[in-house]
Design a binder for these strands. Structure first.
Lengths: 220, 220
DNA sequence: TGGATCCAATTTGAATTCAAAAATGGCTAT
DNA sequence: ATAGCCATTTTTGAATTCAAATTGGATCCA
C-alpha cells in the first residue's frame, strides 16, 4: 500500500466517523486492520495531525481531533472566504460547458428538493459548490478548500434543515446559478458568503460541535 | 529533538534556501546534519510534502519543491483572499491597543521608507500584515495564511521595488491603517487585495519564479 | 480505610535491519 | 568509438528491534 493510500484510508476513517472524534488511536490495532507496520502508519498520522484531523500527544499517542463550537465557526468563516474568492475567480474563468453542468446539477437539486430527498439534494448541492471551486482554476485554492471543508463536511451535509431554511437555501442557490450565468463575480461572492453564513448559524444552532462528553470512545 | 522541531528545522532550511528549490534531498546527509536517524526525518519530509514544500518521487526520494509562475500566481491569489477575509474580521475584532501597535509599526515603516532601508521597511511591513491576520482571531485562518505566505515570503519580502512602486506601496499602507482605524472592513479588504495584486504583478514581472534551469542543485 | 509509592506491563518513539527499486559504472558487441 | 546491456552499488521503503515514557495495579504505611 502506497503512502498516500494509507493517509487516504485513515483520513476517510476519521471523516466517516469510523474513528469517532476524541477517540484514542492505538497504533497496533490500526496497523493490523490496515495490514501494515507501524512505520508507515505513524508517517500518515503525522501528516493528518498537520491537517488538523489528528491530535498528537507527546509520548501518549494520538487521538482523533474534536471540533469545538469555536473550531466550527472558524472553519466556516474560512470556508466563506475561500468560496467567495472562488466565486469571483470562477466568473472570470468558467467555461460555458461548466456553467451548463452547474445548471444541470441545480435543476436536479431542485427536483430532489421537490421530492424532499435530503441525501440526493445534498449530493447535488455539494457538486455545485465544488464545481465553482474547480472553475476558479487555482489548485492551491482547491487544495485548501478540500482540507477545510473535509472537516466540516458531516456538519454541513448531514444536518437536517427546517422547511423554512431549506426553501431559503434553494432560493439562494437560484441566485448563485444566476450570478454565475451572468458572470457577476462580486454578486456571486456575496451570495456565497451569505449562503454559508446561514448554513453556519444553522449548524451551530443544532449544536453539531464534537465536544461530546464521552471520553472512552474507541475505534472499533 | 522533538518531531515538530525536526519539521521546523527542515522547513526553515527550505524557506531560507539553504536547500535550494529543485534540489534533491539525500536522506543520509540530512540525517547526519541534524543528528537524527532516518525514521523521524522521513516523517518530517512527508509532512512537508503535504504542505507543498517538498516533492516526493516514489522510490526516488524527495526534492525541494519549485514554484512555477502559475504556482506563484495561485499562491498570491489565495493570499489575497485570506488577507481580505482577515481584514474584514479584524475590523470587527481588533482591540484599540492592537490598532495602536499597527500604527506604531506603520510609523516606523514610513521612517524606514524615508531612509530607503528596504530590509527594515519589509520587517515592519510584514509585521503589519501579520498583525491584521492575528487580529482576525481565527486560528484556522492564521494557520492557512502562515503556510501560504511561507512559500511566497522570499519573493514577497525580498524583491526590490522601483521608487515609483515603493511610493505607491506606502500610500496603500496609509489607506490600510486608515481603514483599520475607521474599522471599515469592506474598505480594508479592498485595499489589501489591490495591495497584494500590485505586489504579485511586480514579483511576476521580476521573474521571481523558481523554475531555475539548474538541475544539479544540492543541499550543501 | 485512604493515600502515596513502587514495580510490572503496555505503548510510544526512534534506531537498526532487511528487502526492493533505481542509479552507476563497466563491459561487450557492432 | 559508441550504443546497449548486465552486474554492482547506492538509495529508498518498510519491518523489526530496542529503549524510554506512561499507565495500571498492588503493596505498604499513616
Amino acid at each position: 500500500m502506497l503512502h498516500e493510500e494509507v493517509v487516504g484510508r485513515v483520513r476517510a476513517m476519521l471523516l466517516d466517523g469510523e474513528i469517532p472524534p476524541g477517540a484514542r488511536i492505538p497504533e497496533r490495532d490500526l496497523c493490523e486492520k490496515l495490514q501494515i507496520s507501524r512505520t508507515p502508519l505513524r508517517e500518515a498520522l503525522k501528516v493528518l495531525a498537520a491537517e488538523g484531523l489528528v491530535q498528537l500527544l507527546p509520548n501518549r499517542g494520538s487521538r482523533a481531533a474534536r471540533l469545538t463550537d469555536k473550531d466550527m465557526r472558524d472553519l466556516f468563516e474560512v470556508c466563506q472566504g475561500l468560496e467567495a474568492l472562488a466565486g469571483e475567480l470562477a466568473c472570470e474563468r468558467i467555461t460555458d460547458a461548466e456553467i451548463a453542468g452547474v445548471a444541470d446539477a441545480h435543476a436536479a437539486m431542485v427536483r430532489h428538493y421537490g421530492d424532499r430527498d435530503l441525501l440526493q439534494y445534498y449530493r447535488c448541492n455539494r457538486f455545485i459548490h465544488e464545481a465553482i471551486i474547480t472553475a476558479a482554476g487555482n489548485p492551491v485554492l482547491s487544495s485548501l478548500y478540500e482540507s477545510v471543508t473535509a472537516r466540516i463536511r458531516r456538519a454541513r451535509y448531514v444536518t437536517p434543515m427546517t422547511p423554512r431554511r431549506w426553501a431559503l437555501a434553494v432560493q439562494e442557490h437560484e441566485a448563485i446559478l444566476n450570478a454565475l450565468q451572468r458572470r457577476d463575480g462580486v454578486g456571486l461572492s456575496h451570495i456565497l458568503r451569505a449562503h454559508l453564513r446561514h448554513k453556519r448559524e444553522e449548524v451551530l444552532q443544532a449544536g453539531f460541535a464534537e465536544t461530546a462528553p464521552l471520553e472512552q470512545a474507541r475505534a472499533s
